[in-house]
């Protein structure tokens, strides 16, 4: 059923816009095309109105290209720059009120569990630092306290970007911004530490300096959230418009911070680690069995002159 809704009714194939035909024939629904194949398949997010050099857009692109099962994934967004990408996304998504995203995602996940008890549906929250760490911190933390099976992703550009550059709880201490001319007076909130304390089974702090790392952590987070508990990914996504840097320098900024105070951090509980190992073992076992079947089938082919 979930894959069927990505297939075009044959009676309308001749009138469908090309982009939908491409999504069906050469998209990532029900296929193994992922991050490594970017550029060689029709992506779920293409045109968007984000600024040149926006690393939130880059992170968004990497994330939606890394979804293990896009046809069974529902994204929940919130107010902020990321909401501009959501409206262009060829994927089920919900725009929640500012800060409510984790509460909405909790309800959605519970409803999906009831509606589709035998299917895995991934619910992923993707919101900015303002929605996650300031306005929605209550909802974010309580979804973790309750142990909801959802993944939370924070795009951390360290300010409120689309309202002109106000300081957020995630801005660095002393940061001077358009709407914070005297500099921020307190330290950046350590949300990843709050996530660990609140009971997240998997927490990772990553950066757009390493897109492959984002993809790997995101996939782990989704898998763990399915069975073990809430997961959290925090991504550093520099904003050239508000940081007043050249669009082409975003990557340099991300790389510098990655080497400094925004280095990769990962926390995984024992239970989550065991779960990932069990999945890997199952995949290996299945591969070996498939190989064995193929080998046995080969042996059945009579060899000429044998």
């Amino acid at each position: 059923m979930s894959l069927d809704i990505t297939r075009i009714n044959p009676y309308f194939e001749d009138v469908m816009p090309q982009e939908y035909i491409d999504l069906e024939k050469n998209g990532s629904f029900g296929s193994e095309k992922r991050l490594g194949d970017l550029g060689a398949f029709k992506e779920l997010l293409e045109e968007h109105p984000m600024c040149a050099g926006c690393h939130l857009a880059l992170a968004f692109r990497v994330l939606v290209s890394s979804l293990p099962r896009p046809e069974d994934s529902i994204l929940v967004g919130s107010t902020g720059c990321s909401s501009l990408a959501f409206t262009q996304l060829a994927l089920h998504n919900i725009h929640s009120l500012f800060g409510n995203q984790n509460a909405v995602a909790s309800g959605l996940k519970r409803a999906l569990k009831l509606r589709f008890p035998n299917k895995v549906k991934d619910v992923i929250v993707m919101a900015g630092d303002g929605a996650t760490a300031d306005i929605g911190l209550d909802m974010t933390l309580h979804s973790w306290f309750r142990g909801e099976n959802i993944t939370t992703v924070m795009f951390d550009n360290e300010l409120y970007a689309n309202t002109g550059g106000q300081e957020s709880g995630m801005s660095m201490c002393g940061a001077v911004l358009n709407m914070a001319p005297t500099g921020k007076k307190f330290q950046k909130i350590r949300v990843h530490e709050l996530a660990i304390s609140a009971g997240c089974a998997y927490v990772a702090v990553v950066s757009t300096a390493k897109p492959k790392n984002i993809s790997e952590c995101f996939k782990k987070a989704i898998l763990i959230a399915r069975e073990v508990g809430p997961t959290y990914i925090q991504i550093f996504t520099p904003c050239p418009t508000n940081l007043k840097i050249k669009p082409s320098d975003s990557k340099k900024v991300a790389a510098e911070r990655f080497k400094g105070d925004y280095a990769f951090k990962e926390h995984i509980t024992d239970e989550a680690r065991e779960y990932l190992t069990s999945i890997k073992d199952a995949v290996k076992k299945e591969a070996l069995e498939t190989e064995a079947v193929l080998v046995s089938e080969d042996k059945e082919i009579p060899l000429e002159g044998g």
Binding site: M1, D4, I5, T6, R7, I8, N9, P10, Y11, F12, M16
Partner: peptide, 16 residues
């Protein structure tokens, strides 16, 4: 009706 959700939607497409 545009997406192949059910047989009913398929028939609906044919009638349209």
């Amino acid at each position: 009706v545009i997406w192949r959700t059910t047989d009913y939607a398929l028939e609906r497409g044919k009638l349209i």
